[in-house]
Nucleic acid binder design. Structure first.
Lengths: 223, 223
DNA sequence: TGTCAAAGTTAACAGAATGTTAACAGGATT
DNA sequence: AATCCTGTTAACATTCTGTTAACTTTGACA
């Protein structure tokens, strides 16, 4: 299946150039001309990678990147910054904001493509684990299905993400702050009691014994 | 052990808003209305985190940040910048000056608080070895498990921290004051007897022989 | 050996942290 | 439009840690 790439850039000429070259390489392309639009498209299309111009009116690239990275759904999306050479320290701020790479203008399509391929191949090695299987527990990201002890169910998204996180490292204690930032993202403002409620709902389904509370710290999943 | 936060902002309304919300969350707040004052208060109170408005007369936020970061005593203090959206690339200069995060005005208290908590929790994660293993003793921060001589248990937080500290250097004598500041923090006021009680509880679990008292000095963990 | 500060011990308490339930808003679906 | 479902918050209940106080024991030193 073709990898999806979102190009965010206000200069239509550059968009066209990139689009042409990327599609020739078999990528599926989307584009947006400003930060706000970019976030919308990203949420909608869930691209594998986003090419983000730093210089943009309104919501600039860095801020956009931050917003994107704060969405749990897009947390693993790769981001490449496009930057004019003059903008000296942009890469510093960019990496801080969670960028995976940056490329200086003028863009040479060949360079861009080789960088993109390099980055996308990282993904294979790293995360994108879509299935967890420990003992009688099976959690499948693709189908959002969970089965444990002959019980099967599909969890709502947030519950699923939370369980997936905990079960990704059985026995490891995840502290509440860490859970919040990983499942809910850093920018959201949810009361931390929200975690308890979700834990409650998960416990109702997978059984109380499976999730253990470490008071003052957080929760852990046990087999 | 309330974390100390210094708010540097010339608009008194914002100071009040932030102060109100932060104190509600249990933070101890100080404030300063300009850069010079900020440095003074910072040196004096040694806050854990500083919220710094970028736009200030005289010594602006970025310059103030530099000065602060140049003081060894304050080098590890976290800094969050407050910036109006209009000041486009301020964050670049800000990060360069050593900021840890920045937030755009208007400030939403909840967002601010979740960022603050995220940042403060970073510190914890950093300088902590997560596993101690000496002979038949295993203490694992990740799982909060302690096992010794075929006995396993999960300790409450304070007991865990205390045992973890002592066991981090077997045979080393930790003086009471040192234990207090490391486990309880510097700005709390707990009665001295509290340590004994915790030692007692730990001894009940790991065995009396493991923790030895050095009268007039403190305690040490022996294998 | 007697004295006194330091540490041990126990129980009781307060408050923090979490559990639990219900209600509600907003989005998706029918 | 009516209904369902999710995510969130609020309100209240419950559990358990951390701390204190009061009392006892230990051990160093005169």
């Amino acid at each position: 299946m073709a990898k999806k790439i979102l190009i965010v850039e206000d200069d239509q000429d550059i968009v066209d150039l990139l689009k042409y070259n990327l599609e020739k390489e078999g990528f599926k392309c989307y584009s947006a001309s400003n930060g706000a639009e970019a976030v919308g498209v990203a949420m909608n299309k869930e691209p594998d990678l986003i090419i983000l111009d730093i210089m943009m009116p309104e919501l600039d690239g860095i801020e956009t990147c931050r917003v994107i990275k704060s969405k749990p759904k897009l947390h693993d999306t790769f981001v490449i910054f496009l930057t004019a050479r003059a903008e000296e320290y942009s890469e510093i701020a960019g990496f801080e904001a969670g960028a995976d790479d940056y490329i200086t203008k003028p863009v040479k399509p060949r360079v861009l493509i080789s960088r993109i391929k390099a980055i996308l191949s990282r993904k294979k090695d790293q995360h994108s684990i879509s299935k967890i299987q420990h003992g009688d527990l099976v959690i499948d990201r693709d189908t959002f299905k969970v089965s444990i002890q002959n019980k099967h169910f599909t969890l709502p998204k947030k519950e699923f993400e939370l369980l997936f996180l905990l079960a990704s490292k059985p026995d490891k204690v995840f502290r509440r702050e860490s859970i919040l930032s990983k499942v809910w993202g850093t920018d959201v403002s949810v009361v931390d009691r929200t975690i308890d409620v979700h834990i409650r709902k998960i416990r109702e389904k997978v059984g109380d014994e499976k999730i253990k509370t470490i008071k003052g710290v957080g929760y852990k999943f046990v087999l």
